[in-house]
C-alpha cells in the first residue's frame, strides 16, 4: 500500500496535474480569503469554506480522474493487479495519495489563519474544526471520484461523471426539497454530505458527523474494490 501511495503521490508532482490543481485551488482559496475575511476584516472562516466547497466540485475530479482510468488505458492495470499487492492496498494507496494532495493544499492555506493571528484573535479551535470538516468532506468526494475512475476507461469520462455526481451532491438540498414524501426527504437529508458539513460550519464537532464521513469513504472504497474484483473474474 505504501509503495502505491508513494508512487501515486509522486506522480502528481512529476506531471503538471498536481501543480495545476494546487495553483487553481490556491488561487480560488486566496480569492475567497481576500474577498471574505480580509475585505470584511472578520475572523470567522466558515463562509470562506462554504464558498470553497463549490471549487471542490470542479477540482477534485482533476485529482481522481487518472487514478485508475489511466492505468486501464495504458493497460498497466493488469500489471498492477498481478503485483503482490492486495486490491485493498491498491485502492487505499490511490485514495490516500489523492487525499494527501488535497490535505497538502489545505496545509498551504494555513497561511490564512496565520495572517489572521497577526491582526486579530481568530478562535483556533473553530478554525481547526472547519479544516477537519472540510478535509473529511473532500475525502468523501475523493472516494466517489476514485470509484468513478475505477469504473471507467477514459480519464475525461471519469472527470465528467465525477463532476456531475459531485454537482448533484452539492445540489442535494435542492433535490431533497423536490420530494414531498417526508421519509424520502429524511433519507436524502441523512445521506447529504453537505448537510453533515453544515454542522462543522455551525461550530459543532460531532462524533456522528465524523463517523458519517469516514463510513461514506469506506463504502465507496469498498465499492471500488468490488468493481476491480469484478473485473478479475468477468
Amino acid at each position: 500500500m505504501t509503495a502505491i501511495f508513494k508512487r501515486e503521490f509522486k506522480a502528481y508532482f512529476t506531471s503538471p496535474i498536481g501543480y495545476i490543481y494546487l495553483g487553481i485551488f490556491l488561487f480560488f482559496s486566496g480569492f475567497f480569503f481576500s474577498a471574505i475575511n480580509l475585505m470584511y476584516t472578520m475572523t470567522d472562516m466558515s463562509p470562506f469554506f462554504s464558498n470553497l466547497t463549490i471549487i471542490l466540485v470542479f477540482m477534485l475530479p482533476l485529482l481522481t480522474m487518472r487514478l485508475f482510468a489511466e492505468e486501464r488505458r495504458n493497460k498497466t492495470d493488469q500489471l498492477l493487479l498481478t503485483a503482490p499487492v492486495s486490491v485493498f492496498g491498491i485502492v487505499m494507496g490511490k485514495f490516500l495519495s489523492a487525499a494527501a494532495l488535497f490535505g497538502f493544499s489545505l496545509i498551504i492555506t494555513f497561511v490564512y489563519p496565520a495572517v489572521m493571528l497577526i491582526y486579530g484573535n481568530p478562535l483556533l479551535s473553530t478554525v481547526l474544526a472547519l479544516y477537519c470538516g472540510f478535509f473529511l468532506l473532500g475525502c468523501s468526494l475523493i472516494s466517489i471520484g476514485v470509484f468513478v475512475s475505477a469504473s471507467t476507461e477514459s480519464q475525461i469520462t471519469a472527470a465528467i461523471i465525477s463532476f456531475v455526481i459531485l454537482l448533484f451532491i452539492q445540489l442535494s438540498d435542492w433535490v431533497s426539497s423536490l420530494f414531498n414524501n417526508a421519509t424520502v426527504k429524511k433519507i436524502f437529508d441523512w445521506l447529504s454530505v453537505t448537510n453533515r458539513y453544515q454542522e462543522f460550519t455551525d461550530g459543532v464537532l460531532s462524533l456522528s458527523s465524523v463517523m458519517f464521513f469516514i463510513s461514506f469513504c469506506a463504502v465507496f472504497i469498498f465499492l471500488t474494490i468490488s468493481s476491480i474484483e469484478k473485473r478479475r473474474w468477468s
Binding site: 501543480y19 495545476i20 494546487l22 495553483g23 487553481i24 490556491l26 488561487f27 482559496s29 486566496g30 480569492f31 480569503f33 481576500s34 480580509l38 498551504i108 497561511v111 490564512y112 495572517v115
Partner: peptide, 10 residues
C-alpha cells in the same frame, strides 16, 4: 494570497 502563493506553486 491570490497571486503570490499560486504563482510560486505554478
Amino acid at each position: 494570497s491570490i497571486v503570490f502563493i499560486p504563482v510560486i506553486v505554478l
